[in-house]
Structures are given as structure tokens and as C-alpha cells.
């Protein structure tokens, strides 16, 4: 292990990690919004929109992010839709993640027995009151583990960002390997930085899941 090399190029990785994290989080926030919207459309069975959402979910879940990015970055400009690498990465992550988030939210909503809302109606609650006080709190608790799994999944997926020439961690590692042949050091830093990003998120997911299971409601 060449420590001099590591300390020299550490700042480069640090910069790349921030980029990964920044674009990743932005993509996750957008994916969450897309997911909420799609889950609501499917839960309330809104005509026409429901069909569109279904098609979107199938397409998004059955194609790889890398291909989605290539299409957005290299294909779309030919019909006049141009994006810079950063927005392309975020858009791709939102397109991919939206469908995964939608499924996480939908399974949460559907896990609440319809008789719970009927009970709320029988107590005189309106639809929105039943949703706010009875359905959403229960659905959210069920969705959390799947949501956290999706967050980790999407953060990992950012590793293909270098394909649209974003200078992320993979890009940096590949660059250094190609330039200096310091493979071990470059790979060690790559693994290290991904662990720094992903381990806390994974630990948070575990804590939340355990909390919800024990402090949770059970039947």
C-alpha cells in the first residue's frame, strides 16, 4: 500500500464522493415525489393516469439505469432535449427510482385493511380525515423498510454516472488506475468511500426497521 499516493489523491475522491452524494440525494428526493404521486394515482384508481403510471412502472423497472442514462444523454438531444451530465444523472435516478418508490408506498397503503377506513367512516370521519389519522400513519410504518432499501439501491446505482462523464467515484478510480497503475490503492479508496456513504444509511435502515417492528403495532 502506497500511503503517499493515497494521501495525495484522497481529496480527489472526496470531491467525487460529494458529487455522488449530492446527485444521489437529489435523485432520491425526486424519486420519492414521483413515487408518492404514482402510488396515489394507483391507490385511488384514477382513470387514464392509472394506465400511464402502470406503463411507466413496467418500463422503468425492466430497463437498466445505464441504458436509461445513455438514452437520455445521447439519444434525446437528437430530438431536441438536451441535458448536462448532472441533470441527466439526477433525471435518470428519478426515472428509475420513481417506480421502486411507488411500489414501496403502494404496498404500504394496501397493507392497511379496508375495514380500518370503514371504522374511521363509522366514527364520522371524512375521507381526508381517515387518510390522515388512520391510513397514512399505518401505511408509512409499513413502507419504511422498503423505502430505506430503495434509498440504498439508488445510492449504489449512482455508480454508473461515470458513463455520462460525471466525475464520480468510479470515474476517479478508473482514471487513477489508467494513469498510474496504482490499482490496489485506487480500489481501496473506492471501496472505502462507498462504505463511508452506504454503511450509515444501511445502519439507519436497520435501526428504523427494528424500531418499527418492536415499538410497532403488530396485530
Amino acid at each position: 500500500m502506497n500511503w503517499e499516493f493515497i494521501s495525495k489523491y484522497l481529496p480527489l475522491y472526496e470531491k467525487a464522493a460529494w458529487l455522488t452524494l449530492k446527485l444521489g440525494l437529489l435523485g432520491i428526493v425526486l424519486a420519492t415525489l414521483v413515487g408518492l404521486l404514482c402510488a396515489a394515482v394507483r391507490y385511488y384508481r384514477i382513470p387514464v393516469l392509472e394506465g400511464i403510471v402502470r406503463i411507466y412502472i413496467e418500463i422503468s423497472r425492466n430497463t437498466p439505469l445505464l441504458i436509461q442514462l445513455f438514452f437520455i444523454y445521447y439519444g434525446l438531444p437528437k430530438i431536441g432535449i438536451r441535458t448536462d451530465p448532472a441533470s441527466c444523472g439526477v433525471a435518470g435516478l428519478a426515472f428509475l427510482g420513481g417506480s421502486y418508490m411507488a411500489e414501496a408506498f403502494r404496498s404500504g397503503l394496501e397493507s392497511v385493511d379496508p375495514i380500518q377506513s370503514e371504522t374511521a367512516y363509522a366514527l364520522g370521519m371524512s375521507r381526508s380525515q381517515a387518510l390522515r389519522f388512520i391510513i397514512l400513519p399505518q401505511a408509512a410504518a409499513v413502507s419504511v423498510p422498503a423505502y430505506m432499501a430503495n434509498v440504498i439501491f439508488l445510492l449504489k446505482e449512482t455508480s454508473v454516472f461515470s458513463a455520462v462523464s460525471l466525475m464520480d467515484l468510479m470515474f476517479t478510480a478508473k482514471d487513477l488506475i489508467g494513469l498510474y497503475y496504482k490499482t490496489t490503492e485506487s480500489l481501496a479508496m473506492l471501496v472505502g468511500f462507498y462504505l463511508i456513504i452506504l454503511l450509515p444509511v444501511s445502519a439507519l435502515g436497520n435501526v428504523l426497521e427494528r424500531r418499527l417492528r418492536y415499538a410497532g403495532f403488530g396485530a
Binding site: 375495514i115 380500518q116 370503514e118 371504522t119 374511521a120 363509522a122 366514527l123 364520522g124 370521519m125 371524512s126 380525515q129 389519522f133 388512520i134 400513519p137 399505518q138 410504518a141 403495532f217 403488530g218 396485530a219
Partner: peptide
């Protein structure tokens, strides 16, 4: 008022909050 066979208490609320939610909110 209606009471169901399967009780249908709201699992995410304490006993007291189960009772209070409708009188207070509705």
C-alpha cells in the same frame, strides 16, 4: 355507533387516543 367483530382498534394509537381521535377531530 358501530362495533365490528374484529374490534378494529387503530393499532398505531394508544387506547385513550383510539377513543379521543373522533370526538376531538370530528
Amino acid at each position: 355507533g358501530m362495533v365490528f367483530q374484529s374490534y378494529e382498534l387503530f393499532p398505531h394509537m394508544s387506547v385513550l387516543n383510539n377513543i379521543l381521535i373522533a370526538p376531538v377531530q370530528v
